[in-house]
Write a protein that binds this DNA or RNA. Structure first.
Lengths: 254, 254
DNA sequence: ACTAGGCTTTGATCCAGATCGTGGTAAAGG
DNA sequence: CCTTTACCACGATCTGGATCAAAGCCTAGT
Protein backbone atom coordinates (compact mmCIF):
# COMPACT_ATOMS: atom_id res chain seq x y z
CA UNK A 1 0.00 0.00 0.00
CA UNK A 2 1.27 3.43 -0.97
CA UNK A 3 1.13 6.01 1.81
CA UNK A 4 -0.92 9.08 0.88
CA UNK A 5 0.36 12.59 1.09
CA UNK A 6 -1.15 13.30 4.45
CA UNK A 7 0.55 10.32 6.02
CA UNK A 8 3.82 11.50 4.59
CA UNK A 9 3.16 15.08 5.57
CA UNK A 10 2.50 13.96 9.08
CA UNK A 11 5.62 11.83 9.13
CA UNK A 12 8.15 14.32 7.88
CA UNK A 13 6.34 17.48 8.90
CA UNK A 14 7.76 19.73 6.23
CA UNK A 15 5.32 19.67 3.32
CA UNK A 16 4.21 22.94 1.80
CA UNK A 17 0.67 23.13 0.50
CA UNK A 18 0.19 23.76 -3.21
CA UNK A 19 1.03 22.30 -6.56
CA UNK A 20 4.27 21.21 -8.16
CA UNK A 21 6.62 23.43 -10.12
CA UNK A 22 4.76 22.87 -13.42
CA UNK A 23 1.51 24.02 -11.81
CA UNK A 24 -0.40 20.98 -12.95
CA UNK A 25 0.09 18.26 -10.34
CA UNK A 26 -0.68 18.33 -6.65
CA UNK A 27 2.30 18.01 -4.36
CA UNK A 28 3.25 14.46 -3.60
CA UNK A 29 6.03 14.90 -1.09
CA UNK A 30 8.94 16.94 -2.28
CA UNK A 31 9.04 20.61 -3.19
CA UNK A 32 11.40 21.06 -6.13
CA UNK A 33 10.13 24.58 -6.82
CA UNK A 34 11.88 25.91 -3.74
CA UNK A 35 14.93 23.66 -3.82
CA UNK A 36 18.04 25.83 -3.61
CA UNK A 37 20.50 23.16 -4.71
CA UNK A 38 18.54 22.10 -7.79
CA UNK A 39 20.90 23.68 -10.33
CA UNK A 40 23.80 21.77 -8.73
CA UNK A 41 22.13 18.41 -8.87
CA UNK A 42 20.80 16.02 -11.50
CA UNK A 43 17.51 17.91 -11.48
CA UNK A 44 19.18 20.90 -13.09
CA UNK A 45 19.00 19.06 -16.44
CA UNK A 46 15.22 18.85 -16.50
CA UNK A 47 12.54 21.07 -17.99
CA UNK A 48 9.57 21.78 -15.74
CA UNK A 49 7.47 18.87 -17.05
CA UNK A 50 10.28 16.41 -16.45
CA UNK A 51 11.08 17.95 -13.08
CA UNK A 52 7.47 17.53 -12.12
CA UNK A 53 7.48 13.85 -13.00
CA UNK A 54 10.71 13.25 -11.14
CA UNK A 55 9.27 15.12 -8.19
CA UNK A 56 6.53 12.52 -8.14
CA UNK A 57 9.07 9.74 -7.72
CA UNK A 58 10.90 11.45 -4.88
CA UNK A 59 10.39 11.04 -1.15
CA UNK A 60 12.18 12.96 1.54
CA UNK A 61 14.69 11.02 3.57
CA UNK A 62 16.57 11.99 6.72
CA UNK A 63 19.62 10.40 8.22
CA UNK A 64 21.13 11.03 11.64
CA UNK A 65 24.91 11.36 12.04
CA UNK A 66 26.60 7.92 11.75
CA UNK A 67 23.47 6.39 10.24
CA UNK A 68 24.10 4.12 7.24
CA UNK A 69 22.78 5.20 3.84
CA UNK A 70 24.37 2.33 1.89
CA UNK A 71 26.29 -0.70 3.14
CA UNK A 72 29.13 -2.34 1.24
CA UNK A 73 28.09 -5.54 -0.59
CA UNK A 74 24.44 -5.09 0.32
CA UNK A 75 21.52 -4.63 -2.08
CA UNK A 76 20.74 -1.07 -3.16
CA UNK A 77 17.01 -0.41 -3.33
CA UNK A 78 17.11 3.36 -3.47
CA UNK A 79 19.30 6.15 -4.75
CA UNK A 80 19.54 9.64 -3.25
CA UNK A 81 20.03 13.24 -4.10
CA UNK A 82 21.65 14.96 -1.13
CA UNK A 83 20.00 18.30 -0.30
CA UNK A 84 21.65 19.07 3.06
CA UNK A 85 24.41 17.72 5.27
CA UNK A 86 27.47 15.64 4.48
CA UNK A 87 28.28 11.94 4.22
CA UNK A 88 31.35 9.77 3.80
CA UNK A 89 31.78 7.01 1.19
CA UNK A 90 34.27 4.27 2.04
CA UNK A 91 35.43 0.76 1.36
CA UNK A 92 36.65 -1.64 4.01
CA UNK A 93 39.14 -4.48 3.64
CA UNK A 94 38.38 -7.65 5.62
CA UNK A 95 41.16 -6.84 8.11
CA UNK A 96 39.68 -3.45 8.92
CA UNK A 97 41.82 -1.21 6.77
CA UNK A 98 39.59 1.54 5.41
CA UNK A 99 39.76 3.77 2.35
CA UNK A 100 37.39 6.72 2.18
CA UNK A 101 36.63 7.15 -1.54
CA UNK A 102 34.76 10.42 -1.23
CA UNK A 103 32.58 12.80 0.72
CA UNK A 104 29.08 13.74 -0.39
CA UNK A 105 27.73 17.25 0.11
CA UNK A 106 24.51 18.94 -1.06
CA UNK A 107 23.96 18.49 -4.79
CA UNK A 108 25.76 15.13 -4.90
CA UNK A 109 24.02 12.01 -6.10
CA UNK A 110 24.41 8.77 -4.16
CA UNK A 111 24.12 5.59 -6.18
CA UNK A 112 25.42 7.05 -9.43
CA UNK A 113 26.32 3.64 -10.82
CA UNK A 114 22.78 2.32 -10.24
CA UNK A 115 24.40 -0.97 -9.29
CA UNK A 116 22.31 -3.64 -7.59
CA UNK A 117 24.91 -4.04 -4.88
CA UNK A 118 26.86 -1.23 -3.36
CA UNK A 119 30.62 -1.48 -3.67
CA UNK A 120 31.06 0.92 -0.76
CA UNK A 121 29.40 2.02 2.44
CA UNK A 122 27.98 5.50 2.91
CA UNK A 123 27.02 7.04 6.20
CA UNK A 124 25.99 10.43 7.38
CA UNK A 125 28.55 12.72 9.04
CA UNK A 126 26.01 15.39 9.98
CA UNK A 127 22.21 15.20 9.83
CA UNK A 128 21.54 14.55 6.12
CA UNK A 129 18.43 15.30 4.15
CA UNK A 130 18.02 13.82 0.70
CA UNK A 131 15.50 13.03 -2.00
CA UNK A 132 15.02 9.30 -2.12
CA UNK A 133 14.17 7.45 -5.33
CA UNK A 134 13.40 3.78 -5.69
CA UNK A 135 16.30 2.44 -7.73
CA UNK A 136 14.23 0.39 -10.15
CA UNK A 137 11.73 3.18 -10.70
CA UNK A 138 14.49 5.72 -11.15
CA UNK A 139 16.27 3.46 -13.62
CA UNK A 140 13.07 2.99 -15.61
CA UNK A 141 12.41 6.75 -15.56
CA UNK A 142 15.93 7.25 -16.85
CA UNK A 143 15.18 5.12 -19.90
CA UNK A 144 12.32 7.49 -20.78
CA UNK A 145 14.34 10.66 -20.21
CA UNK A 146 17.55 10.83 -22.23
CA UNK A 147 18.26 14.34 -20.95
CA UNK A 148 18.45 13.05 -17.38
CA UNK A 149 20.52 10.07 -18.49
CA UNK A 150 22.91 12.42 -20.23
CA UNK A 151 23.18 14.48 -17.08
CA UNK A 152 23.97 11.44 -14.98
CA UNK A 153 26.50 10.30 -17.55
CA UNK A 154 28.22 13.65 -17.36
CA UNK A 155 28.22 13.52 -13.58
CA UNK A 156 29.73 10.04 -13.74
CA UNK A 157 32.46 11.34 -16.05
CA UNK A 158 33.14 14.16 -13.60
CA UNK A 159 33.32 11.75 -10.68
CA UNK A 160 35.68 9.56 -12.68
CA UNK A 161 37.93 12.52 -13.26
CA UNK A 162 37.91 13.36 -9.55
CA UNK A 163 38.72 9.73 -8.70
CA UNK A 164 41.71 9.83 -11.03
CA UNK A 165 42.86 13.07 -9.48
CA UNK A 166 42.62 11.37 -6.10
CA UNK A 167 44.82 8.55 -7.43
CA UNK A 168 47.48 11.13 -8.28
CA UNK A 169 47.15 12.64 -4.81
CA UNK A 170 47.39 9.32 -2.97
CA UNK A 171 49.95 7.74 -5.29
CA UNK A 172 52.41 10.53 -5.93
CA UNK A 173 52.02 13.42 -3.51
CA UNK A 174 53.62 14.05 -0.13
CA UNK A 175 51.61 14.12 3.09
CA UNK A 176 51.51 17.91 3.28
CA UNK A 177 50.53 18.22 -0.39
CA UNK A 178 47.74 15.70 0.12
CA UNK A 179 46.26 17.72 2.98
CA UNK A 180 46.49 20.97 1.03
CA UNK A 181 44.89 19.37 -2.07
CA UNK A 182 42.11 18.07 0.12
CA UNK A 183 41.38 21.41 1.76
CA UNK A 184 41.57 23.42 -1.46
CA UNK A 185 39.46 20.87 -3.33
CA UNK A 186 36.83 20.79 -0.61
CA UNK A 187 36.71 24.58 -0.50
CA UNK A 188 35.89 24.58 -4.23
CA UNK A 189 33.12 22.07 -3.70
CA UNK A 190 31.60 24.00 -0.79
CA UNK A 191 31.77 27.16 -2.88
CA UNK A 192 29.14 25.76 -5.26
CA UNK A 193 26.78 25.12 -2.36
CA UNK A 194 27.30 28.03 -0.01
CA UNK A 195 29.33 30.58 -1.98
CA UNK A 196 33.00 31.40 -1.94
CA UNK A 197 34.46 31.56 1.52
CA UNK A 198 37.94 31.03 2.92
CA UNK A 199 36.38 29.04 5.77
CA UNK A 200 36.23 25.36 4.91
CA UNK A 201 33.78 23.34 7.03
CA UNK A 202 35.17 19.94 7.95
CA UNK A 203 32.23 17.80 9.09
CA UNK A 204 34.44 14.68 8.99
CA UNK A 205 36.95 13.59 11.63
CA UNK A 206 40.73 13.63 11.20
CA UNK A 207 40.54 9.86 10.88
CA UNK A 208 38.17 10.22 7.90
CA UNK A 209 40.55 12.69 6.27
CA UNK A 210 43.47 10.33 6.90
CA UNK A 211 41.58 7.41 5.38
CA UNK A 212 40.71 9.56 2.38
CA UNK A 213 44.32 10.61 1.81
CA UNK A 214 46.04 7.28 2.50
CA UNK A 215 47.69 8.65 5.66
CA UNK A 216 47.38 8.19 9.42
CA UNK A 217 45.52 10.53 11.74
CA UNK A 218 48.81 11.66 13.29
CA UNK A 219 50.26 12.65 9.93
CA UNK A 220 47.13 14.62 9.02
CA UNK A 221 47.16 16.35 12.41
CA UNK A 222 50.85 17.23 12.08
CA UNK A 223 50.36 18.54 8.52
CA UNK A 224 47.50 20.80 9.61
CA UNK A 225 49.50 21.99 12.63
CA UNK A 226 52.43 22.81 10.37
CA UNK A 227 50.22 24.74 7.92
CA UNK A 228 48.84 26.67 10.90
CA UNK A 229 52.38 27.30 12.24
CA UNK A 230 53.36 28.54 8.75
CA UNK A 231 50.36 30.93 8.86
CA UNK A 232 48.77 29.39 5.75
CA UNK A 233 45.57 28.64 7.68
CA UNK A 234 43.99 28.75 11.11
CA UNK A 235 42.05 25.95 12.73
CA UNK A 236 38.51 26.97 13.70
CA UNK A 237 35.75 24.86 15.31
CA UNK A 238 34.67 22.18 12.81
CA UNK A 239 36.85 23.50 10.01
CA UNK A 240 39.77 25.61 8.90
CA UNK A 241 40.10 29.13 7.60
CA UNK A 242 42.50 29.48 4.69
CA UNK A 243 44.69 32.53 5.20
CA UNK A 244 46.66 32.38 1.97
CA UNK A 245 44.55 30.71 -0.71
CA UNK A 246 47.02 31.73 -3.41
CA UNK A 247 50.00 30.03 -1.75
CA UNK A 248 47.90 26.97 -1.08
CA UNK A 249 46.80 26.84 -4.72
CA UNK A 250 50.47 27.05 -5.67
CA UNK A 251 51.16 23.90 -3.66
CA UNK A 252 48.30 22.12 -5.45
CA UNK A 253 49.58 23.21 -8.87
CA UNK A 254 53.03 21.88 -8.03
CA UNK B 1 36.73 16.21 -48.92
CA UNK B 2 35.70 12.81 -47.64
CA UNK B 3 37.94 9.96 -48.79
CA UNK B 4 36.07 7.20 -50.63
CA UNK B 5 36.17 3.58 -49.63
CA UNK B 6 38.86 2.66 -52.11
CA UNK B 7 41.20 5.30 -50.83
CA UNK B 8 40.66 4.03 -47.33
CA UNK B 9 40.96 0.42 -48.41
CA UNK B 10 44.26 1.25 -50.00
CA UNK B 11 45.43 3.10 -46.91
CA UNK B 12 44.63 0.57 -44.24
CA UNK B 13 44.68 -2.55 -46.38
CA UNK B 14 42.21 -4.47 -44.31
CA UNK B 15 38.79 -3.79 -45.75
CA UNK B 16 36.56 -6.74 -46.54
CA UNK B 17 34.28 -6.40 -49.55
CA UNK B 18 30.53 -6.55 -48.90
CA UNK B 19 27.85 -4.79 -46.98
CA UNK B 20 27.47 -3.84 -43.35
CA UNK B 21 26.12 -6.09 -40.64
CA UNK B 22 22.51 -5.06 -41.29
CA UNK B 23 22.84 -6.02 -44.95
CA UNK B 24 21.55 -2.72 -46.18
CA UNK B 25 24.46 -0.31 -46.38
CA UNK B 26 27.69 -0.63 -48.32
CA UNK B 27 30.84 -0.81 -46.23
CA UNK B 28 32.28 2.55 -45.34
CA UNK B 29 35.47 1.66 -43.56
CA UNK B 30 35.03 -0.58 -40.55
CA UNK B 31 33.78 -4.15 -40.48
CA UNK B 32 31.70 -4.59 -37.33
CA UNK B 33 30.22 -7.89 -38.56
CA UNK B 34 33.52 -9.63 -38.03
CA UNK B 35 34.66 -7.72 -34.95
CA UNK B 36 35.56 -10.23 -32.26
CA UNK B 37 35.61 -7.77 -29.39
CA UNK B 38 32.20 -6.23 -30.17
CA UNK B 39 30.36 -7.84 -27.24
CA UNK B 40 33.00 -6.41 -24.87
CA UNK B 41 32.76 -2.88 -26.15
CA UNK B 42 30.15 -0.14 -26.36
CA UNK B 43 28.92 -1.65 -29.64
CA UNK B 44 27.57 -4.66 -27.76
CA UNK B 45 24.57 -2.55 -26.70
CA UNK B 46 23.36 -1.90 -30.23
CA UNK B 47 20.86 -3.68 -32.44
CA UNK B 48 21.96 -4.24 -36.02
CA UNK B 49 20.41 -1.03 -37.36
CA UNK B 50 22.14 1.05 -34.73
CA UNK B 51 25.38 -0.86 -35.16
CA UNK B 52 25.24 -0.15 -38.83
CA UNK B 53 24.84 3.58 -38.27
CA UNK B 54 27.66 3.67 -35.77
CA UNK B 55 29.79 1.73 -38.23
CA UNK B 56 29.29 4.57 -40.65
CA UNK B 57 30.78 7.03 -38.15
CA UNK B 58 33.84 4.89 -37.47
CA UNK B 59 37.25 5.03 -39.11
CA UNK B 60 40.12 2.70 -38.44
CA UNK B 61 43.05 4.17 -36.58
CA UNK B 62 46.49 2.72 -35.90
CA UNK B 63 49.04 3.84 -33.36
CA UNK B 64 52.66 2.75 -33.10
CA UNK B 65 54.15 1.97 -29.69
CA UNK B 66 54.79 5.20 -27.71
CA UNK B 67 52.61 7.19 -30.07
CA UNK B 68 50.24 9.62 -28.33
CA UNK B 69 46.49 9.00 -28.57
CA UNK B 70 45.51 11.83 -26.21
CA UNK B 71 47.63 14.49 -24.54
CA UNK B 72 46.92 15.96 -21.13
CA UNK B 73 45.25 19.42 -21.25
CA UNK B 74 44.91 19.30 -25.03
CA UNK B 75 41.69 19.39 -27.04
CA UNK B 76 40.01 16.05 -27.74
CA UNK B 77 38.60 15.84 -31.25
CA UNK B 78 38.05 12.11 -31.42
CA UNK B 79 37.19 9.19 -29.16
CA UNK B 80 38.29 5.59 -29.72
CA UNK B 81 37.20 2.05 -29.26
CA UNK B 82 40.32 -0.08 -28.82
CA UNK B 83 40.20 -3.27 -30.92
CA UNK B 84 43.77 -4.52 -30.52
CA UNK B 85 46.90 -3.69 -28.52
CA UNK B 86 47.33 -1.92 -25.20
CA UNK B 87 47.77 1.68 -24.05
CA UNK B 88 48.56 3.52 -20.84
CA UNK B 89 46.56 6.42 -19.39
CA UNK B 90 48.46 8.76 -17.08
CA UNK B 91 48.59 12.16 -15.46
CA UNK B 92 51.75 14.17 -14.97
CA UNK B 93 52.52 16.71 -12.26
CA UNK B 94 54.52 19.76 -13.35
CA UNK B 95 57.65 18.43 -11.60
CA UNK B 96 57.55 15.18 -13.53
CA UNK B 97 55.90 12.90 -11.02
CA UNK B 98 53.61 10.55 -12.91
CA UNK B 99 50.52 8.59 -11.96
CA UNK B 100 49.28 5.96 -14.39
CA UNK B 101 45.48 5.95 -13.93
CA UNK B 102 44.81 2.90 -16.07
CA UNK B 103 45.70 0.63 -18.94
CA UNK B 104 43.44 0.21 -21.98
CA UNK B 105 43.08 -3.17 -23.69
CA UNK B 106 40.77 -4.37 -26.48
CA UNK B 107 37.15 -3.54 -25.75
CA UNK B 108 38.02 -0.41 -23.76
CA UNK B 109 36.70 2.97 -24.75
CA UNK B 110 39.03 5.98 -24.74
CA UNK B 111 37.40 9.34 -24.10
CA UNK B 112 34.56 8.04 -21.96
CA UNK B 113 33.96 11.42 -20.37
CA UNK B 114 33.54 13.08 -23.81
CA UNK B 115 35.34 16.07 -22.32
CA UNK B 116 36.61 18.80 -24.61
CA UNK B 117 40.02 18.67 -23.01
CA UNK B 118 41.73 15.53 -21.89
CA UNK B 119 42.62 15.36 -18.21
CA UNK B 120 45.23 12.68 -18.93
CA UNK B 121 47.61 11.52 -21.60
CA UNK B 122 47.20 8.21 -23.38
CA UNK B 123 49.83 6.50 -25.45
CA UNK B 124 50.22 3.16 -27.10
CA UNK B 125 52.31 0.47 -25.40
CA UNK B 126 52.10 -1.97 -28.33
CA UNK B 127 50.79 -1.33 -31.82
CA UNK B 128 47.18 -0.30 -31.23
CA UNK B 129 44.25 -0.52 -33.60
CA UNK B 130 41.06 1.28 -32.74
CA UNK B 131 37.81 2.57 -34.18
CA UNK B 132 37.97 6.33 -34.29
CA UNK B 133 34.90 8.54 -33.90
CA UNK B 134 34.75 12.28 -34.25
CA UNK B 135 33.88 13.46 -30.73
CA UNK B 136 31.19 15.94 -31.77
CA UNK B 137 29.58 13.50 -34.18
CA UNK B 138 29.71 10.72 -31.62
CA UNK B 139 28.21 12.95 -28.96
CA UNK B 140 25.39 13.96 -31.32
CA UNK B 141 24.78 10.31 -32.26
CA UNK B 142 24.57 9.53 -28.56
CA UNK B 143 21.72 12.00 -28.13
CA UNK B 144 19.73 10.03 -30.73
CA UNK B 145 20.52 6.61 -29.26
CA UNK B 146 19.61 6.25 -25.61
CA UNK B 147 20.64 2.59 -25.62
CA UNK B 148 24.20 3.55 -26.48
CA UNK B 149 24.13 6.36 -23.94
CA UNK B 150 22.95 3.92 -21.32
CA UNK B 151 25.78 1.57 -22.23
CA UNK B 152 28.37 4.33 -21.91
CA UNK B 153 26.85 5.40 -18.61
CA UNK B 154 27.17 1.85 -17.32
CA UNK B 155 30.76 1.66 -18.52
CA UNK B 156 31.48 4.96 -16.77
CA UNK B 157 29.99 3.53 -13.58
CA UNK B 158 32.19 0.46 -13.94
CA UNK B 159 35.29 2.58 -14.52
CA UNK B 160 34.40 4.65 -11.47
CA UNK B 161 34.20 1.50 -9.40
CA UNK B 162 37.59 0.36 -10.70
CA UNK B 163 39.07 3.76 -9.91
CA UNK B 164 37.78 3.52 -6.34
CA UNK B 165 39.21 0.03 -6.02
CA UNK B 166 42.52 1.47 -7.21
CA UNK B 167 42.29 4.11 -4.46
CA UNK B 168 42.01 1.31 -1.89
CA UNK B 169 45.01 -0.44 -3.45
CA UNK B 170 47.20 2.65 -3.52
CA UNK B 171 46.00 4.12 -0.26
CA UNK B 172 45.81 1.14 2.05
CA UNK B 173 47.67 -1.87 0.68
CA UNK B 174 51.29 -2.98 1.06
CA UNK B 175 53.71 -3.10 -1.88
CA UNK B 176 53.38 -6.86 -2.36
CA UNK B 177 49.57 -6.73 -2.13
CA UNK B 178 49.49 -3.96 -4.70
CA UNK B 179 51.49 -6.01 -7.19
CA UNK B 180 49.33 -9.10 -6.62
CA UNK B 181 46.11 -7.07 -7.00
CA UNK B 182 47.46 -5.63 -10.20
CA UNK B 183 48.38 -9.00 -11.70
CA UNK B 184 45.16 -10.73 -10.66
CA UNK B 185 43.05 -7.79 -11.83
CA UNK B 186 44.82 -7.63 -15.16
CA UNK B 187 44.42 -11.38 -15.64
CA UNK B 188 40.66 -10.98 -15.20
CA UNK B 189 40.58 -8.21 -17.78
CA UNK B 190 42.63 -10.19 -20.31
CA UNK B 191 40.34 -13.17 -19.74
CA UNK B 192 37.45 -11.26 -21.32
CA UNK B 193 39.53 -10.61 -24.44
CA UNK B 194 41.55 -13.77 -24.93
CA UNK B 195 40.02 -16.33 -22.61
CA UNK B 196 41.10 -17.57 -19.24
CA UNK B 197 44.81 -18.21 -18.99
CA UNK B 198 47.27 -18.23 -16.14
CA UNK B 199 49.71 -16.31 -18.33
CA UNK B 200 49.29 -12.57 -17.89
CA UNK B 201 50.77 -10.48 -20.71
CA UNK B 202 52.47 -7.36 -19.41
CA UNK B 203 52.89 -5.02 -22.36
CA UNK B 204 53.84 -2.19 -20.00
CA UNK B 205 57.24 -1.63 -18.38
CA UNK B 206 57.98 -2.09 -14.69
CA UNK B 207 58.07 1.71 -14.46
CA UNK B 208 54.51 1.89 -15.78
CA UNK B 209 53.39 -0.68 -13.22
CA UNK B 210 55.19 1.26 -10.46
CA UNK B 211 53.52 4.51 -11.54
CA UNK B 212 50.16 2.74 -11.56
CA UNK B 213 50.62 1.35 -8.05
CA UNK B 214 52.22 4.36 -6.39
CA UNK B 215 55.56 2.54 -5.96
CA UNK B 216 59.06 2.69 -7.42
CA UNK B 217 60.37 0.39 -10.09
CA UNK B 218 62.71 -1.29 -7.60
CA UNK B 219 59.89 -2.13 -5.24
CA UNK B 220 57.82 -3.61 -8.08
CA UNK B 221 60.82 -5.59 -9.25
CA UNK B 222 61.53 -6.86 -5.74
CA UNK B 223 57.88 -7.80 -5.17
CA UNK B 224 57.75 -9.79 -8.41
CA UNK B 225 61.09 -11.45 -7.57
CA UNK B 226 59.77 -12.42 -4.16
CA UNK B 227 56.54 -13.85 -5.62
CA UNK B 228 58.67 -15.88 -8.06
CA UNK B 229 60.95 -17.02 -5.21
CA UNK B 230 57.85 -18.08 -3.24
CA UNK B 231 56.72 -20.08 -6.31
CA UNK B 232 53.50 -18.11 -6.69
CA UNK B 233 54.41 -17.15 -10.24
CA UNK B 234 57.14 -17.38 -12.86
CA UNK B 235 58.38 -14.51 -14.97
CA UNK B 236 58.07 -15.18 -18.70
CA UNK B 237 58.98 -12.92 -21.64
CA UNK B 238 56.62 -9.93 -21.63
CA UNK B 239 54.52 -11.23 -18.80
CA UNK B 240 54.11 -13.55 -15.85
CA UNK B 241 52.57 -16.98 -15.44
CA UNK B 242 50.53 -17.37 -12.26
CA UNK B 243 51.31 -20.69 -10.61
CA UNK B 244 48.91 -20.48 -7.70
CA UNK B 245 45.93 -18.35 -8.71
CA UNK B 246 44.03 -19.41 -5.58
CA UNK B 247 46.71 -18.23 -3.17
CA UNK B 248 47.06 -15.00 -5.12
CA UNK B 249 43.29 -14.43 -4.98
CA UNK B 250 43.52 -15.00 -1.22
CA UNK B 251 46.01 -12.13 -0.95
CA UNK B 252 43.64 -9.89 -2.95
CA UNK B 253 40.68 -10.81 -0.73
CA UNK B 254 42.73 -9.96 2.36
C1' DA C 1 31.82 21.15 39.28
C1' DC C 2 33.44 16.87 38.31
C1' DT C 3 34.03 12.96 35.47
C1' DA C 4 34.10 9.94 31.42
C1' DG C 5 34.83 9.12 26.79
C1' DG C 6 35.82 10.51 22.18
C1' DC C 7 38.75 13.10 19.40
C1' DT C 8 43.01 15.63 18.53
C1' DT C 9 47.71 16.97 19.22
C1' DT C 10 52.44 16.18 20.21
C1' DG C 11 56.64 13.52 21.10
C1' DA C 12 59.80 9.36 20.54
C1' DT C 13 60.99 5.54 17.96
C1' DC C 14 60.68 2.34 14.10
C1' DC C 15 60.36 0.45 9.50
C1' DA C 16 58.56 -0.22 4.65
C1' DG C 17 59.68 1.48 0.86
C1' DA C 18 62.51 5.26 -1.47
C1' DT C 19 66.90 6.43 -3.11
C1' DC C 20 71.43 5.52 -4.76
C1' DG C 21 74.69 2.66 -6.89
C1' DT C 22 76.25 -1.36 -9.49
C1' DG C 23 75.90 -4.80 -12.67
C1' DG C 24 73.46 -7.93 -15.90
C1' DT C 25 70.75 -9.01 -20.10
C1' DA C 26 68.57 -8.38 -24.50
C1' DA C 27 67.49 -6.05 -28.63
C1' DA C 28 68.98 -2.57 -32.21
C1' DG C 29 72.32 -0.67 -34.94
C1' DG C 30 76.75 0.01 -36.87
C1' DC D 1 81.77 -8.41 -33.97
C1' DC D 2 81.23 -4.49 -30.50
C1' DT D 3 78.55 -0.55 -28.79
C1' DT D 4 74.53 1.68 -27.38
C1' DT D 5 70.26 1.89 -25.19
C1' DA D 6 66.64 0.36 -22.42
C1' DC D 7 65.10 -2.44 -19.06
C1' DC D 8 65.56 -5.17 -14.98
C1' DA D 9 67.63 -7.03 -10.58
C1' DC D 10 69.52 -6.42 -6.23
C1' DG D 11 72.47 -4.79 -2.38
C1' DA D 12 73.40 -0.64 0.82
C1' DT D 13 71.67 3.26 2.93
C1' DC D 14 68.34 6.78 4.01
C1' DT D 15 63.89 8.82 5.23
C1' DG D 16 58.93 10.10 5.28
C1' DG D 17 55.41 8.63 7.34
C1' DA D 18 53.80 4.72 10.44
C1' DT D 19 53.59 3.15 14.96
C1' DC D 20 53.69 3.50 19.84
C1' DA D 21 52.85 6.31 23.88
C1' DA D 22 51.02 10.06 26.45
C1' DA D 23 48.98 14.11 27.28
C1' DG D 24 45.38 17.98 26.08
C1' DC D 25 40.61 19.25 25.10
C1' DC D 26 36.07 19.38 24.17
C1' DT D 27 31.17 17.91 25.16
C1' DA D 28 27.74 15.24 27.59
C1' DG D 29 26.19 13.30 31.53
C1' DT D 30 25.80 13.09 36.53
Amino acid sequence: MIPNRHDLAFRNGELAEGVCVCNRHPHANVDCAHCTIRPLSICGALDSDELCELEGLARHAHFAPRQAIFSQDEAVDAVFNVTAGAARLYRLLPDGRRQVVGFAIPGDFLGLALAEKSVYSVDALTPVTACRFNREAFSAFLDQRPALLRRLYEMAGHELSLAQEQMVIIGRRTAEERVVCFLVGLRKRWARVSGNSVTVPLPMTRQDIADFLGLTIETVSRAISKLARDKLLVVVPDGVRLLEPARLEAIVDG
